[in-house]
């Protein structure tokens, strides 16, 4: 079978760039939560800088996808892979924005003592990061089982988010002085929960790429 070398090379490059973008997003989420945990304001500022790289990469990949469609007339699964790439880079860009928003919150909280030790948020972060990594791996490797697993993990994140919500609510009821910071922490939990939703979207694109059907994995 004749492989379309030029086409395959361009498609491989797009996938490489998506992995790179995913790596930056993961780093960004990691830094954002670390900076919050350690109240490391410098690290929070660095996180905000990473977002610029993520945004730039999104545009680069978008241009490459457009070029591929315009010059190589992809069809069937190739076309679905490219159309999914379009969507996925948008998901990643949104994740980057959420990480940036967490970093901004860290800066807002500044050096005020934390109202509670952070346990569930870092736990949630680990799960979310794994979802991001697995969703992209599933996309690159056409791994349907892994994609479905991402969808299932989303439920765990939703549960953790609800747990954090209830816990912070109790804290606020008990001590209204915590309301300000507790609200910020709630937004952070919400941001992580949204990142997980975007990872699930990516996993759904894997199913679309493979079978041409729009699945709901959530």
């Amino acid at each position: 079978m004749v492989e379309r070398q030029q086409f395959q090379k361009m498609l491989d490059q797009i996938q490489q760039d998506i992995i790179k973008m995913g790596g930056l997003v993961e780093e960004s989420i990691d830094n954002a939560i670390e900076s919050l945990k350690k109240q490391d304001l410098e690290l929070a500022k660095e996180t905000i800088q990473i977002d610029k790289k993520i945004d730039q990469l999104e545009l680069t990949i978008e241009d490459a996808c457009i070029q591929l469609i315009a010059t190589q007339q992809p069809a069937a699964r190739d076309l679905r892979k490219i159309s999914s790439s379009f969507k996925i880079i948008h998901n990643l860009e949104r994740m980057g924005d959420y990480a940036q928003s967490i970093a901004n919150t860290t800066l807002t909280i500044g050096n005020d003592p934390l109202i509670k030790p952070l346990i569930d948020l870092p736990r949630m972060t680990l799960i979310v990061q794994k979802m991001v990594r697995n969703s992209l791996e599933a996309f690159i490797q056409d791994n349907e089982a892994l994609a479905k697993q991402v969808g299932e993990t989303d439920d765990e994140v939703d549960q953790l988010h609800n747990q954090i919500f209830n816990e912070l609510l109790l804290l606020m009821i008990k001590n209204p002085a915590t309301i300000n910071q507790a609200t910020h922490l709630l937004f952070i939990s919400r941001a992580l929960e949204r990142i997980a939703d975007h990872a699930t979207d990516i996993a759904e694109r894997v199913i679309y790429t493979l079978h041409g059907i729009h699945a709901n994995l959530n």
Partner: peptide
């Protein structure tokens, strides 16, 4: 085979 043909793979 259709997929391969319309994707320009042969």
């Amino acid at each position: 085979r259709t997929e391969d043909y319309i994707s320009g793979r042969f």
